[in-house]
Amino acid sequence: MSEDSVKTSAEASTNHTVQSSKAALSRQIKEQAQRIDELTALIQQKEQELIGLSGQAHLMDELTHKLQKTETAMQLANAQVQAKSHLIDELTGTLKEKEQQIMTAAEHAQLIDDLTAKLQEVEIKLVAASLQGKHSNAQNTVKTHMVSGMALGLLPAPLFDIMALSAVQLNLLRSLCNHYSVDFDEQLGKGIVSSLISGSLPVLTVLGLSSFAKLIPGIGTVGGGLSMTALAGAAIYAAGQVFIRHFEAGGTLQDFDSKHWQAFFKQQLEEGKAFVRNKLDTAGTTKIGA
C-alpha cells in the first residue's frame, strides 16, 4: 500500500473521530443545557414555594402574636373573675352578717313591741286602777257630804237648813275640784250649784215645803226633818254624780253647762232617793234590833 493511501486513510479516520467527538460533545452540551433549564425551572419553583412559605411564616407570626394577646387577655379576665369572685364572697359574707343583724334587729324590735304592749297594758291597768281609786275616793267624798246634808235636815230652824244645804253642796264642789285638780272659784261655784238645783223646780219646791213643814206644831219638826233629810241626801248625791262625771270627762267650772246636766241630775236624784231610803231603813232596823 502506498504512503499516500495510508495517509489518506489516516486522515479519514481522524476526521471521522473528530466528527464523532463533535457530535458527542454537541449532544452532551445539548443535554447539559436541557438539564440547566430543568434546574432553573426547579429553582424558580422552589423560590415560589419559599416565597409562599415566607408568607405563611408571616401569617404564623401574626397568629402567634394574636394568640399571645388572647392569652394575655384571658389571664387578665381570669384575674378579674377571681377578684370579682373574691368580692362576691366578701359581699356574701357581709350580706349574711347583715341578715343575721336584721334578724337580731327584728327579734329586738319584736321584743320591744312585746314589752311596749305589756308596758301599755300595765299602764292602762294602772291608769284604770288609779281612775277607779280616784272615782271611789270621789264617791266617798260625796257620801261624807251626804251625811252632813242629811244631818242638817234635822235642824229645827226653817229655811236655815236650805241655806246650810247649799253650803254643803258648795263645799262638796270645792272638795271634788281639789280631788280632780280643777281650779275652784267660789262665786262661779255658787252659781253652778244654784243653777243646777234651780233647774229642777220640783226638787226646790219640795225642799222648801219640807223646810216650812217644820213650822207646823207637834209633828211638823219631825216630819219635815225626815222629809228634808231624805231630799237633802238625794240632792247632794245627784249633784256629786254630776260633778264627778263632768270632771272625769276633763271638764272645768268654766265650761260647766247646767242645762246639759239637768236630765242626768234628775236621774241621779231618783237613785239618790233610793240610796237614802235604803240607808234610813237599814238604820231603823238596826235601832229596832238594838
Rank of each mutant, 00 (worst) to 15 (best):
D4I: 02
D4P: 02
A10S: 06
A10W: 05
E11D: 04
T14H: 01
T14G: 00
H16S: 05
V18M: 08
Q19R: 14
Q19P: 14
S21Q: 14
S21T: 10
A23E: 14
A24E: 11
S26M: 15
S26E: 06
Q28T: 11
I29A: 11
K30V: 08
K30H: 09
Q32D: 11
A33P: 07
D37Y: 08
E38D: 14
A41R: 07
L42P: 01
L42F: 09
I43V: 01
Q44S: 03
K46V: 12
L50N: 15
I51A: 00
G52I: 01
L53T: 09
G55W: 10
Q56R: 12
L59K: 09
E62Y: 05
E62P: 03
L63K: 13
T64R: 15
L67C: 11
T70D: 05
E71A: 15
A73L: 03
A77D: 05
A79K: 03
A79S: 05
Q80S: 08
K84E: 13
S85K: 11
H86I: 13
H86W: 11
L87V: 13
D89V: 12
T92L: 12
T94A: 01
L95D: 00
K98V: 09
M103W: 02
T104C: 09
T104K: 08
A105K: 10
A105D: 12
A105R: 13
A106Q: 14
E107H: 04
E107W: 06
L111V: 02
L111H: 03
I112Y: 15
D114G: 10
L115T: 05
T116L: 04
Q120T: 04
V122Y: 08
E123S: 08
E123K: 01
V127S: 10
A128R: 13
S130M: 07
H135I: 02
H135C: 04
A138F: 00
V147T: 08
S148C: 11
G149I: 02
L154Y: 08
P156N: 14
P158G: 01
M163N: 14
L165Y: 03
V168D: 14
R174Q: 15
L176Q: 11
N178F: 14
H179N: 05
S181W: 00
S181H: 09
V182K: 13
D183M: 04
D183F: 09
F184A: 15
E186W: 01
E186K: 04
S194C: 04
L196R: 06
S200W: 05
P202W: 08
P202C: 02
L204C: 05
L207N: 03
L209M: 04
S210L: 02
F212Y: 03
A213F: 04
K214L: 03
I219N: 01
G223Y: 00
G225I: 00
L226D: 00
A230Q: 07
L231N: 05
A235L: 01
A239D: 08
A239F: 11
A239H: 12
G240A: 10
Q241A: 07
I244F: 06
G250N: 01
T252W: 09
L253M: 12
Q254T: 12
D255F: 13
D257H: 10
S258V: 00
H260V: 08
H260M: 07
Q262K: 06
F265A: 04
Q267V: 09
E271Q: 07
K273S: 08
F275Q: 15
V276P: 01
N278T: 07
K279N: 07
D281S: 10
T282H: 06
T286I: 13
I288R: 11
I288Y: 06
G289V: 14
